[in-house]
Amino acid sequence: MEGILAQTIVSGLLIGFLYALIAVGLTMIFGVMDIVNFAHGDYLMVAMYFSFWLFFLFGFDPLFSLPIVTILLFGLGVITYYLIIRPIINAPMLSQIFVTFGLLIFLRGLAQFLWKVDYRMIPQTLSSGNIEAFGIYFGKPQIIAAAGAVICNGVILWFLKKTRLGMALEAVAEDKEAARLMGIDSDRMYALAWGIGIASVGIAGVLLSSFYYVFPEVGANFGLIAFVVVALGGFGSIPGAFIAGIIVGLVEVLSGFLIAPSLKFMFVLAIYLAVVFVRPQGLLGHK
């Protein structure tokens, strides 16, 4: 019993790091420009398909396709910004919600149209296998994914706090007008936020693709989980998303283990409701 519980907690922690990485892009875009990207989970799906096809057509292991997909998704994020987000920055919130929702439907429909609803999986990767320590099995792809997520979150945080470009981005998030007076081009900063935000979810997608199925709806649940993580951590807070990701991962596996696996998603969503009712600013957000 203790063994299984420990195993469960470990797998919850590992998946939690990945949730944090998925959510970081969402919280960053929200923090910088107050727009919620409802299609966030579907960029994860796109990255997973890229990773799958690179493997299937060229035999690239996900670890090799990681940089390629990251660059592709960065470009996709920037293109998305210029094409459909920029026109609605000052539009009513209803338009903003519907634009990113349209994007969600578009990406999901496109995936369904191009690749059908089949579940696909990369069969054998460099990172396949298990490690045993203290009587607990760690899946190697999960460990690599968790480590990648931690590193990636660290790099984003370092970028925002220590580099001039990152600080400029934070300045725009803090006060757009003041940033403009300091000579910061908010338009380019927004594009950068979209690029980084989508690239980070792309990294998560590639890491995930080495141990999870790819199908057109895969982004739905991960996208919702990302919302829960972002809300729990506080909209716009990156360290908050990191902590919240781990909490959500733990809640998911523990409720699945202690209550019923088919109900675990319910508990994850209940966290969102509990947070927005009791502490709307989240764990580390400020209002």
Partner: peptide, 24 residues
């Protein structure tokens, strides 16, 4: 048929995005 699965959603998505941007 099943060949066009998702095609209707692609069309709506384009309509929605255009409407939300141009004619909310």
């Amino acid at each position: 048929g099943s060949q066009g699965q998702g095609m209707d959603f692609i069309i709506y998505a384009l309509i929605i995005m255009v409407i939300a941007i141009m004619r909310p």
